[in-house]
């Protein structure tokens, strides 16, 4: 495992834990898209079914279990424990526009027409667009709390670092997975506009707010 990959995983973990802590400490999930969080729970579940079929390493197993556990805890906090603070009126992205096309694409473009492989492919495609309900919510309300911005930044950095990891692996190992690379590129591009706002505003101590 190279450094890009490891830092990518850490960044992903940081994002997930940051969001959990934010909700827990403030006792509120205002400004957080429950729909994006459900999509991420679906992504992890579909992708990590190989926990039951394929052992890779202790690191791999632990990270998968932690991602899944944190993801489901987040969904539970939003839709059950702190339901009263959930901003459903602003969380109006139509998730079927993401789930249906990515599911169809997973059936059409995959490495292997087997249930586990199709689910893995679906999870890769769905992950690349799963943040859209959250970004839509930020654009709708015109602002995001600083901690939510940090969460989004860490989540965007994760896939960006994976792109460098894939370049590294292609160069030194001759390994590449076109499905993951193309989806990872799409995913990273979706964060670009946010990266710009984060660097020009949040890092200068301002709250992220969009021009009206």
């Amino acid at each position: 495992m190279n450094l890009f990959r490891f830092l990518g995983d850490l960044s992903h973990l940081l994002a997930i834990i940051l969001l959990l802590l934010k909700i827990w400490k403030s006792r509120s999930c205002a400004g957080i898209s429950g729909k994006s969080q459900v999509l991420f729970a679906v992504v992890f579940t579909a992708r990590y079914l190989d926990l039951f079929t394929n052992y890779i390493s202790l690191y791999n197993t632990c990270m998968k279990v932690v991602y899944i556990a944190c993801s489901f805890t987040t969904v539970w906090l939003i839709y059950s424990k702190f339901k009263a603070t959930y901003d459903g009126n602003h969380d109006t992205f139509r998730v079927e526009f993401l789930v249906v096309p990515t599911a169809i694409l997973a059936f059409l473009v995959n490495h292997d027409f087997t249930p586990l492989e199709i689910l893995w492919t679906f999870s890769i495609y769905l992950e690349s667009v799963a943040i859209l309900p959250q970004l839509f919510m930020v654009s709708k309300t015109g602002e995001a709390e600083t901690i939510t911005s940090h969460y989004l930044f860490a989540l965007g950095v994760y896939r960006t670092l994976y792109l460098f990891n894939w370049i590294w692996r292609y160069h030194f190992e001759g390994f590449f997975d076109l499905i993951a690379i193309v989806a990872g590129l799409v995913q990273t591009v979706l964060y670009c506009d946010f990266f710009y706002l984060y660097i020009t505003k949040v890092l200068k101590g301002k709250k992220l707010s969009l021009p009206a």
């Binding site: 995983d9 890779i56 990270m63 087997t114 893995w120 994976y162 990891n165």
Partner: peptide, 10 residues
């Protein structure tokens, strides 16, 4: 190459 293989990435 780009084909189905054990997934070591997260």
């Amino acid at each position: 190459g780009s084909e189905s293989k054990p997934k070591d990435e997260l």
